[in-house]
Design a protein around this nucleic acid. Structure first.
Lengths: 224, 224
DNA sequence: CATGGGAGTTGAACGTGTTCAAGATAGTGG
DNA sequence: CCACTATCTTGAACACGTTCAACTCCCATG
């Protein structure tokens, strides 16, 4: 996921050394102010060697990204095992992401910059990250499935993807959130979850059915 | 809007010459491949002089955005004068943006990539683009105000901003849309507008009121 | 043990965004 | 007409991401 990774034997250690050095320096001095020369130096390799393992400075960030995904999946498993009710599940899943992502908030901009470039394989919409994307959506499928919520037939198949889109929205907000401890993002989640819960329960009302159908149709039409 | 612009007299022409040169070169060669040296050369000024007028290469893009915004405002004025009904108004306003933006689509990704970074002055959420953002929101205020749509009191003040967010979503989709003539974005608009229209009209239903209040509260809580 | 080739490693060199100290220019007051 | 200042202009210099041709090292094969 991090790279084409044609599988390296022992010198995978070198790779890790570079990632570790980069993380240390990024963390202490910020991304922009950390030079590739400094990273290479800190890792005890030459500048060129760093580029043997990582195509660019931005690619080093991908390592961060991967760790975040992993940690979140883990955290979600714990949440889902313990909580049966839908709204709290969703709330905890989203908050868990904020917790997991917190240490990397400083680099959020860099992540997002990658996400924004449509041609980049790092984009969450790219074919290359299809697996990761579907894994993420699956997290929300689990969130829905194991819960007490009743979802109308029309919505059942697409709700996980819609929730994933919700999370993309939260991420977007989070990226721009400069408040301490990302308090505003947490506030957003606290407000949004009950709203979403309410909306989902409301889809069973006859008046709302038509809108739900339209929405589902829109999602289908728009999915390439 | 483009800059602090302490108002220059005649040599404002130089500024324009630089913008024009940049636009020409960005258009023909893309953003990344266009160097500041080339822009300065094309504009007939020195490298340093270009930096006297524009703090960075990114700041040049702002001028680009400003023009798009201008064209859109113009197009919208024509639409709003001719069309009294809400849904068609919204549809035409959104489609007008797609039309106006079409010439820039091929390198929109590059621009977007730069704009996406929160620290970038190009970000639609940045303080630097506050004026542009408010102008854009105002376009939607006009779209609502002059139309036949009845908006509940709770929603009235915030609907324009919500519609602007909708447009941000459309823009995001558009950036990734590789279909010829951005057909898929247009299709998205065709589907989304009736849905939005329906949702807005639905807000008058008593059952839905609570949700609307929650949504408005969420928007308020979240606005810095 | 020799050897051929791939994997890993190196630092000099390059291109580009940006800065800056110095100079030119033009408008203003005497 | 002469300073004097604020505005404008310049290109060399700098820092940093990235590239690359050359080199070393390891080890599988004969």
């Amino acid at each position: 996921m991090t790279d084409p990774a044609p599988l390296s034997p022992k010198a995978e250690q070198t790779r890790q050394a570079i990632v570790d050095a980069a993380m240390r320096l990024f963390r202490s001095g910020g991304y922009e102010k950390t030079t590739m020369r400094a990273i290479a130096g800190e890792a005890g390799v030459s500048l060129g060697n760093a580029y043997y393992y990582f195509a660019s400075k931005e690619h080093l960030i991908q390592a961060y990204y991967d760790r975040m995904q992993e940690s979140h999946t883990e955290a979600v498993a714990a949440v889902l095992a313990a909580e049966p009710s839908f709204a709290p599940r969703l709330r905890k899943v989203l908050l868990a992401w904020v917790d997991v992502a917190a240490p990397y908030h400083e680099f959020a901009g860099k992540f997002f910059k990658n996400a924004a470039e449509p041609t980049s394989p790092l984009s969450p919409f790219s074919p290359e990250s299809k697996a990761a994307r579907e894994a993420a959506i699956d997290l929300f499928r689990q969130t829905v499935d194991g819960s007490d919520v009743k979802v109308t037939k029309a919505l059942r198949a697409d709700l996980p993807e819609l929730l994933w889109l919700l999370q993309m929205g939260v991420v977007l907000f989070w990226v721009y959130d400069a408040s301490p401890d990302q308090a505003r993002t947490r506030a957003l989640i606290e407000k949004a979850v009950p709203l979403v819960d309410r909306l989902i329960r409301m889809t069973r009302l006859p008046v709302v059915r038509g809108v739900v159908d339209d929405l589902v149709e829109l999602v289908h039409a728009v999915r390439s």
